[in-house]
Every structure is written in structure tokens, then in C-alpha cells.
Write a protein that binds this DNA or RNA. Structure first.
Ligand SMILES: [Mn+2]
Ligand SMILES: [Mn+2]
Ligand SMILES: [Zn+2]
Ligand SMILES: [Zn+2]
Lengths: 137, 137
DNA sequence: TTACAAATCGTAATGATTACTTTATAATAA
DNA sequence: TTATTATAAAGTAATCATTACGATTTGTAA
């Protein structure tokens, strides 16, 4: 785990960001919970260690870590949720609606769609599958 | 247009719902604006006719009309938005980020995804394409 | 160690959505 | 047509996620 964390410290430094306790604890949390977490859940999980962790700090760091691709995010169940970035190539996710665990989907037909709608320019797309994972169904 | 509206009146009655002025005016609005509208936009558009239209009325009717498949909805730009239901078969949408207009996408590889993730049960999925429509690009 | 920019805290404001009590209205039957 | 009744809407407050901001603390480089 220590080597893993060192990698993230370097990533922060490479982007001219400070390596703070709060940030590293947040990254550790996301490494331990490999699923999407809301700001609220982050606050609850870190409350033991940092009883007065500010929402300002939480939201700013969630979006900062997303900028440098430590986290990825999605609007799920009406709120923005974040998870550790799990892969370097283009992919999407399956999310278990029971336990929250995710699986990577590799197949993405964005070219097929661009072909079907050849008079528009697709600049972005969202694909998300929901259901029950092997353990929950 | 009158025949079109009559169809929606029947749909309301078929579901045991009252045909009210507010509901019919909301449906007309969605027929005229063939794109996703937020509750706020609905309130603004209908403010001329009904200066005191309540948010309770707007939200309740948006979800009621969605239940009976007069409207479809999506979480877009951080809020729930609604549009007139445009087709009876399974489909998704392209949304122009400039003007808000939408186009139907017919191709959907949900079977391919179910095949890729054969140990999970996909019960739901979201596909949405964003970009610039022919007129805006 | 010191200096300073960046990060965090504490707290308030905002904006979307929900809740609830009172009042009005559409549907139905007399 | 009128009376009855359940549904819908108004008016307003509460809730929840998110954003904002001045005061304070902390990480980093000299
Ligand atoms: Mn991922
Ligand atoms: Mn549609
Ligand atoms: Zn894709
Ligand atoms: Zn589909």
C-alpha cells in the first residue's frame, strides 16, 4: 500500500499541488472502497479521523483529484459521486444497485453512434449500466 | 393540434387522472419545445399564463406525466429535466449542448454489454450523447 | 527557521427539490 | 344543473446538496 500511495503523492506534486493529510486520507479511503462515494459518504467515513472536515475541503479536493485523474465521477442517484480512477483507456461502468460495486465495461460503440448521427458532432457521451452483481443477484 | 391534445386527454383519463388546465398547458408547452426542460424552465414559461403556479404542482405533474409515459426524463446538467416522450420503441438521445435540441439514437448494444458482463444482471442502463447539432456546429 | 502561497475551517448562502396545510376544481351522481 | 367528493393546486416552509468566502492553518521552498 505504501508504494501505491507514493505514486499518488508524486501525481499531486507533478501537478503543483500540495500533499496534505486530508488529501492522502481521502485517496486512501477511495482505494479501500472501490465504488462510487458521495461527498456525504466521504464526510461520514472521514469523520472519525477529522471530526471537523469542512465541506469546502471535501468538494474542492474531490474535484481537484478528478482534474488530475486520480478520481472519476458520475451523477448517480441525484448526486455527484466519485470513485478511484480504475483504468487508463476509454471505458464505462456497470454499477450494482444493491451494493454499489462497479465493473468496467470495455465495449463502447461511440463510433457507431457518430456514424448513425453523421450530421452532428459528438463531443461527449455517458454510458452506465445498472443492475445486480454476481454476489447480489 | 387539437387532435393531438385529445389523445393526451384520453391518456390522462385512462389512468384515472383529472384533465386540468395546468396539466394540458404543460403538455402543450412540451409539444412546442421538443427538448429537455427543467422544472425552473417550465415555471418560467408558464409564468405568463399562471403567475402563481406552484412548484408542488410543477414537480408533481412532471413526475405524474412521466409515470404515464407522456414525458421522459433525464438528469442533465445537475438537474432533472423532462421532454415529451418521442417514440414507443427502445431508444436513447443525443443532446446539443448549445441549443438543447435532441435527436433519437436507435442503435443500442445492451445485449452486447450483457454478453460482456455475463455474471451480472443488467436491469437498467443510461446512454446519452452530447455535442453540437448540425445547426450549431 | 522563515515567508508565502495554498489549503482548510467555520459558517453562511444558494438552488433544486420535497413536504404540508388550506383552498380550489374536475368528475360524478342526484 | 346542482351537490358531493376526491383529486389537484396554492402558498409557504423545510430539507438536502452544493457553493461561497473571510479568517486561520499548513506544506513547501528558500
Ligand atoms: Mn473507471
Ligand atoms: Mn425519447
Ligand atoms: Zn464510450
Ligand atoms: Zn438502450
Amino acid at each position: 500500500m505504501a508504494a501505491e500511495l507514493k505514486k499518488y503523492k508524486m501525481k499531486l506534486r507533478d501537478h503543483g499541488l500540495k500533499v496534505t493529510e486530508k488529501r492522502m486520507t481521502m485517496i486512501e479511503l477511495f482505494l479501500n472502497e472501490d465504488r462510487y462515494l458521495s461527498a456525504k459518504e466521504v464526510q461520514e467515513q472521514l469523520h472519525k479521523t477529522y471530526p471537523s472536515l469542512s465541506y469546502d475541503t471535501i468538494y474542492r479536493n474531490l474535484y481537484t483529484l478528478k482534474e488530475i485523474e486520480v478520481l472519476e465521477n458520475t451523477n448517480f442517484e441525484g448526486e455527484m459521486q466519485f470513485k478511484i480512477s480504475c483504468s487508463d483507456h476509454h471505458h464505462h461502468h456497470f454499477i450494482c444497485e444493491e451494493c454499489g460495486n462497479t465493473k468496467v465495461i470495455h465495449y463502447c460503440p461511440v463510433d457507431t453512434w457518430q456514424n448513425e448521427l453523421d450530421d452532428v458532432e459528438i463531443t461527449n457521451h455517458k454510458v452506465e449500466l445498472y443492475g445486480l452483481c454476481a454476489g447480489c443477484k
